[in-house]
Every structure is written in C-alpha cells, then in structure tokens.
Design a protein around this nucleic acid. Structure first.
Length: 605
RNA sequence: GCCCGCGUAGCUCAGUGGAUUAGAGCAUUUGCUUGCGGAGCAAAGGGUCGCGUGUUCGAGUCGCGCCGCGGGCGCCA
C-alpha cells in the first residue's frame, strides 16, 4: 500500500549505512508491527549489528554488544529520516525501527481498493503457468465416506487457492474403476442381486457398498469352516477370478454389467460433487490408461530404465536408486509389470502423468492423495525424471493424514464406515434445529438453503482447519459443534456485517477516515489489508489451512468490533459513512476467504 | 534395518530464526442483552514447547543424537 514511500525509506537506510561506515545492509525485510493500537511496518538491525561486530572483532579484537548496537542504528535512522506523506512517526525500540502509518491515508487506500475490486480482491497476477490438481479419486463400486470427503474438500480448496493466486488451473478426477474389489461387486451383483437395485442415486450407490461387504464376507476364509463351506467359498473364488478374466478379455456381458454398476457409483459421486459445488474439468479412468501403461513399460525397457526379468520368470522392474546413481537406498526398486503381464497402479500413474504433460500441457502437477502413498508418489516422480520430463520436479504430492473414527480405522468389511451423505444430512438437520430456535422468523423457503450452506460449511471447515499432514479422528459431535473456531462462527460475522449494511440501505460511495480510529477498527483494517499476501503464501505452500486460520481471525476481529464500535449509531455522519465502508470491506474479504475454502457465505442465518 | 511424519495447556490444534509474559478453540469458572442479530463479547485459571546437545546477538522454529507414537518399504491401490 505504501510501496513508493517504502522504497524511499530503503534508499535512506542504504545512504545512512554508507555515511556511517556500516556494512551494506542488503535486502531489507519489512514486517508488520505487532498490534498495539496503531500499526505500521518495521525492520530490525540485528543482522547488520552482528555483521559489524564481526568486522570490529577481526580488526580490533573488541566485542560489540549486538543488541545495543542494533538499537543505536535504529535510533540514528529514526532521527535522520525526513517526514514522509502517509507516515505519522518513526520510533526505535529494542533494535527495531518502527514506522507508523497515517491511519487516515492507509485506511482509505485499503477500503477503497477492496470495494473497487470486489470478488477479485486478493486475486494474484497471472503466473503464466498451468497447474493440474488431481483429487476426488474414490474407487467406484463403493460409497463415498468421510475420508473421501476430506480428499475432495482439500483438493477443491487447493484448486481454488492456486487458481485465485494466479495459476491457470485444471481440476482432474481419477476414479479407480477397475481392480479386484470392483470385480467382486460386479460378480456378486450378477449372481445374487441382478435387477434388485433400489431407486435413488444415493441409495443405489450405498447399496453397492453393501454388496461389496457381503461378497467379501463370502470370500473370506473363516475359522472352523466346514468342508462344505470351504468348497462353496472356493467355488465362489473361482467364479470371481473367471469374471476378472472375462472383463480383461472384453467379454460383452461382463463389460455391460461393469459399466452399468459403475454408472451408479459415478452418479452418486457426481451428486455429491454437485452438492459441494465441485466441478471437475477432466475425468481420467483407471481402466482407460491401462493400454497406454503397457506401452510405457516397453518404452522404459528400450530406454534402459527398466529391467526385464520376465525371461527368468520374474517381472519388469525399475531399480530407481541405481538408475539415479544413489549409493544409499532411498526410492528402492519398483515393479511396473507383473510377471503375468498385467500393469500396476504405479504403471498407470506414469501413463497418466505423461498424458497430463503431453496432452494437457501442464507445467505443474498436484496430487491430493493419502500420505500413506508418499513413497509411491516419490517413486513415480523419480521415474518421470528418469524418463526426461522436466515437469517432474514440479510434481507435488499433497499427502494428507487419514480420517479414522473414535472406534478405530474405517473398515467397510467391519461395518465401520461413516458415509458422507449421512453426516451431511445430520449436519443439515442440526442446523435446521438451531434456525428454528434462533431465527424462527426465517421463511420456510429459505431455511433449507441456509441449513445446507451452514451445515456443509461446518463440515468443510472441520477438515480444512487442520494441517494437511495431521490425521483426523472424526467425531460427529465435534465436527457439528457450531461454537468457537468453526464455519458458522465465520459465517455469522458475515451475516452481521450484512445485516448492518442492509439496515443502512447500502454502502456510501465515498468516505474519509480522517478521525481518531478505535483500536478495533485499526486491527480490522490491518487484517483485511493482509489478505492478498496470505493468499500468495498459502498457494506457495499449498496450505488451505492458512486461509482457514485467517478467516477465523478476521471473523473474530469483526465480532469484537461489532460489539464495541457503533456503526449505524456512530457519533457523526462522517464516521458512520466511513465505518459502513469498512464493514463492507470486511464483509467482502470474509466472503472471498470463505469462497477459497469452498464455504458459502449466507445472507442470513 | 532404512525412509517419511508427528510430539506445544486436561482435550483438539495454530505458531516466517526476531516484539514485554509462547497463542486459539473445546472443557472449567466469572461477568455482559431497555443498543447493529447472543451461532456473540469481555475476563480468569491452566505450559520444564518429548529429552539432551550444538549453531546463532537471538531457537517452539535450524543441525546432530536419543526417547515415544503413527505410517511406509518389488509383482495391493
């Protein structure tokens, strides 16, 4: 906001150092002054003083007190700085040079700029780079559970973040639509449940999960199995394997059953993504990259990257450490083609990456995948590097911790799965109950929409307000608590701001902040002015958490101000107009931050 | 054995090498509603930042060594 003035100050510091025989200060790092009623920017001189102390020690053998010298330098600069428009005073405190902004000028610049930019406030300049974010990769023929939800919401928040920060962004989904688990369901459907599928997108999706659990039970060896049971189980097992073989051979009947049941899973997935306002640009299916993956195996053998041990009855492998010339084991060795000639997950990931780089021309590829696949992803990137893809070093695995339940890890077979749809329904039910209590006047027609915004927002925030690598133990009551550090708390700040502006009849077109601002106002201005920098930092580090923390802090600051500082009843017309514009700017910033988290900002709640 | 992650208040978690006294939320205790919506605000108690040792003017933050927990490690995904 004060870039020009800041440059003049930096030039002054450079001159001061030369004139006083001090070492070259180098790049000057500015940080906000910790809030104490007013605000501004500061820099410290510890490094410079330490550098000087070293030089003096070398020349004269004397030791300088670094703390004291830093303070002396800061004082010298503070006293010699000429007056600058936009700044009120300079202070030297314990080695820091503090420059205090003129509140009126700064505030007006911030507020005017936010209200002019609107939903684009915080958006970064185009980076000229294309990113693909891969997330939402559930297996088909299962149902969408709370762990899938973490993946989807984290991926979407990441996509929104990098897009807003200035990257051209493509959202990709990669469902696992084939494999033994999938075939198990198709087989069991054909054998036991053909044509018995229920109506309803979610019911049908969840029904497939039930079939999977039952089928897996039938196929799992039991203790104290009678010979008859054993024979039956083995017969089933043979049928299942035969089903897989027929799928692989392209048998029309099996393919049709597979596509039909897959459709039900994808319909359910689509319904949930719609509910979450997630719009995938590109769908890749595991079954579709298989052929291409086999070609890559041949390519790797030809290039001498892979070793073909098939003549010895083995598989095709890549000795990654050896090919990279590493002495110690790090990426180890990986199989890319089974001895029976079928591909593996890794092989398909190589194929998919190649498609991303060549067909979609992506410069940077992000993978939102469970942290347990960390080694696997590193191996993939290293093989891509060996294949000569320069984009390999811009591949990033956002590994997130897994979601478990208070009773332990989720397990469909043990019937221990929390389905997202059930949680979402419960969340909406609870919000409706709160609305009935707190806002009985809300029209019926509006209640469902608001309940959805608040309920789903609470769930999203529960997932995004924890750092990526942390495991989450999902507790329904904790996730649906609407007090404290939650989405409803943030949404409520937005609603309150909205309510003030509605009562005021709109936002004044212009206002001056030339009055004594209260500490609450200053703190709010300070925070909203930092939003663009937070966006860049969060995008740089791929951490939606920074936005989640920021949004909470902003809401908290607004709630405090709301309580203490009168807006509509301000003591003068000037102050009323100024505060209305400030409230509008805060509302806009809250909205923009929430949008990055895929959380809606309701007008009322 | 090797690799990755984690260890901060009773619980769940934040914390760019730099700002008096390490911060939030939940839980506990107390106060605030004839004011703009109380899904709120204000406040109190609660900490050997796993242990040790370096680097540094300065370490919760960086290095090294331990301890503890979780995850991963050639034909699963």
């Amino acid at each position: 906001m004060f870039e020009k003035e800041q440059q003049a100050i930096e030039a002054h510091i450079q001159r001061y150092c030369i004139e006083h025989g001090l070492p070259e200060p180098g790049k000057i790092n500015w940080a906000p002054i910790p809030f104490a009623g007013e605000w501004g920017i500061s820099t410290s001189f510890f490094k410079l003083a330490a550098q000087e102390a070293r030089l003096v020690k070398e020349r004269t053998g004397q030791s300088l007190n670094v703390q004291q010298r830093a303070q002396e330098i800061a004082e010298g600069i503070a006293n010699s700085l000429p007056e600058l428009a936009g700044f009120t005073r300079y202070e030297a405190v314990r080695g820091y040079l503090d420059l205090f902004f003129s509140t009126a000028v700064f505030t007006q610049r911030v507020v005017d700029s936010i209200l002019a930019l609107g939903e684009n406030f915080g958006r970064g300049d185009p980076k000229g780079e294309r990113i693909m974010v891969e997330y939402a990769q559930p297996n088909t023929h299962h149902s969408f559970h709370i762990g899938h939800f973490r993946n989807a919401i984290l991926g979407e928040a990441l996509a929104r973040l990098v897009e807003f920060a200035g990257f051209e962004t493509i959202r990709a989904s990669y469902p696992g639509d084939i494999g033994l688990g999938v075939i198990t369901v198709v087989w069991a459907y054909q054998k036991f449940y053909l044509g018995q599928e229920p109506e309803g997108v979610h019911e049908r999706g969840q029904w497939l999960l039930k079939i999977y659990v039952e089928a897996t039970n039938l196929l799992t060896p039991k203790e104290n199995e009678t010979p008859e049971e054993k024979a039956r189980r083995e017969a089933f097992e043979a049928e299942r394997r035969e089903f897989y073989r027929r799928w692989d051979a392209g048998d029309p009947e099996v393919r049709e059953l597979w596509l039909r049941t897959r459709r039900w899973s994808l319909d359910e997935l689509q319904a949930i993504l719609d509910m979450l306002d997630i719009h995938i640009d590109v769908w890749f299916f595991e079954s579709e990259v298989d052929e291409f993956a086999k070609e890559i195996v041949e390519e790797l053998i030809e290039k001498g990257i892979a070793d073909d041990e098939r003549p010895q009855g083995g598989a095709v492998i890549v000795k990654i450490d050896e090919k990279l010339g590493l002495k110690k084991e790090k990426y180890r060795t990986n199989v890319i083609l089974r001895s029976d000639g079928t591909t593996l997950y890794l092989t398909k990931d190589l194929a998919l990456a190649k498609i991303k780089f060549e067909r979609y021309q992506v410069d940077r590829s992000l993978y939102v995948i469970d942290v347990r696949q960390s080694l696997h992803m590193q191996q993939t990137y290293k093989i891509l590097e060996l294949m000569g893809f320069p984009q390999a070093e811009k591949c990033y695995h956002l590994g997130y911790g897994f979601v478990s339940l208070p009773e332990g890890a989720m397990s469909a077979r043990k019937g221990r799965v929390v389905l997202f749809k059930d949680v979402a329904d419960e969340a909406i039910r609870r919000v409706l109950a709160v609305i009935a209590e707190k806002n009985p006047g809300m029209p019926e027609s509006q209640r469902m929409d608001v309940a959805r915004q608040v309920g789903l927002g609470a769930l999203a925030y529960a997932m995004l307000s924890v750092d990526n690598n942390k495991d989450i133990v999902f507790d329904m009551d904790a996730a649906l608590n609407f007090d404290g550090r939650t989405a409803p708390y943030i949404q409520n700040a937005y609603v309150r701001a909205n309510s003030i502006l509605r009562k005021a009849g709109g936002i004044p077109v212009q206002a001056s902040f030339d009055y004594q601002l209260t500490p609450h106002e200053v703190q709010l201005i300070d925070l909203i002015s930092r939003f663009p920098a937070i966006v860049q930092q969060a995008a740089q580090e791929y951490k939606p958490l920074y936005i989640a923390s920021y949004a909470y802090e902003l809401a908290s600051t607004f709630h405090s101000l709301y309580h203490v500082v009168p807006v509509l009843q301000a003591e003068s017309e000037t102050m009323r107009d100024a505060r209305l514009r400030l409230v509008a700017a805060a509302r806009q910033t809250l909205r923009n931050a929430l949008r990055l988290l895929d959380i809606q900002a309701p007008e009322v709640m």
